[in-house]
Design a protein around this nucleic acid. Structure first.
Lengths: 192, 192
DNA sequence: CATTTTATATACCGAACGGTATAATGAGAT
DNA sequence: ATCTCATTATACCGTTCGGTATATAAAATG
């Protein structure tokens, strides 16, 4: 069982550094000091390995995201908690977060994108719901909730990419003030 | 010579749809109705094909970007022209722009990322310069010009991704008002 | 007309790809 | 002590990978 975790760890590092398609199964098991049948015993296929990796890491994230939505606050506070959850997740495992981002922006017909798509969709649905619940504060959004949701997660991702540039050694965690600024900037964008 | 263009066109479509690593050389020449030696005659290698594709498409873009910088205006106007140039380029060939974005967010050690890196760096240098020239309006930026530049292009990219969601059939071009809003939102983010 | 140059195809290369049939290992249960 | 079952390795599969040696056809050049 620890070898299963080891394989997932090695796969994460290699996918992050080289990209899913550019990494061979042989390369993954070599790094783990194992052989191919072990990998296929646990995951069935290369894609199965990616899927298991995503599922394992993202199910805890999903719980945290839904938690952020539970408390019935105004839209600004909700967005603040959402952003905080994203940033915490990023701080906990930057490599995985950046891998997620690369997959999200990758080609639509690529099987790696197909693998992450359901999770991205699920997160969006949560954020869309946040905007729908805030219709009393935001007025008629004319069905633009989904665009707002994409915009919000895009703003966060873009902020985190910037964070990687500003602090490549990962010395600092993201501050409360940074998150507040982030939400303010996005809210300003909505009201214009 | 027309076959050279044809190969670049086919490669662009396939790279966009499936990703650089997931597309085989055979697949490209099949789509073009040609054979492998023809591709290798013109480009030398698969990576050479990608590089030629990027160079061909991006050299005209680079000229337009530098043009936007030439006129000595205030920072808001400069950013407006920059954003307009990006959006026009996007409207002219969405597939290529989205391919560019996917490459930009792809794994750092991947050869496809290495191929687009010099162009991305060059564009950043231009935008960094814009912020440096505006130090009289923005005050002491404490060496954060580069972050501003990443932030600005990130904001644009994220807006264009959103545009693809909102108008998948590409019926409308991006309006002046949308560009103005984009710049406003970014400027607001800087001043906080 | 002969010759070089450009552009394309046939047929192939070794290596790497994702994946598997089979067997050995080792710990826990009967 | 044997049996089971989870786990791992050896050795292999057919396919596809990026890339090329060689031939050919057409076009430009002398």
């Amino acid at each position: 069982m620890e070898n299963k975790m080891l394989l997932m760890q090695c796969a994460k590092e290699l996918f992050y550094a080289k990209g899913y398609d550019a990494v061979g199964v042989q390369e993954i098991v070599d790094r783990a000091g194992l052989t191919k049948p072990t990998l296929y015993y646990y995951f069935g296929s290369k894609l199965g390995l990616l899927k298991t990796l995503l599922e394992t890491k993202l199910q805890e994230f999903d719980l945290l995201v839904e938690e952020s939505m539970k408390m019935d606050q105004d839209i600004r506070a909700t967005l603040y908690w959402l952003a905080k959850t994203y940033c915490n997740f990023f701080d906990k495992d930057r490599e995985f977060y950046m891998l997620m981002m690369a997959l999200f922006y990758s080609a639509r017909e690529n099987e790696a994108y197909q693998a992450i798509k359901p999770y991205v969709t699920a997160f969006y649905d949560n954020v869309v719901e946040a905007f729908e619940n805030a219709s009393d504060q935001l007025g008629n959004m004319n069905g633009r909730q989904r665009q707002f949701a994409i915009g919000f997660t895009g703003t966060i991702n873009h902020f985190l990419l910037l964070q990687c540039e500003a602090d490549p050694e990962h010395k600092k965690e993201i501050s409360e003030q940074q998150i507040i600024n982030l939400v303010n900037q996005f809210m300003y964008g909505i009201f214009t």
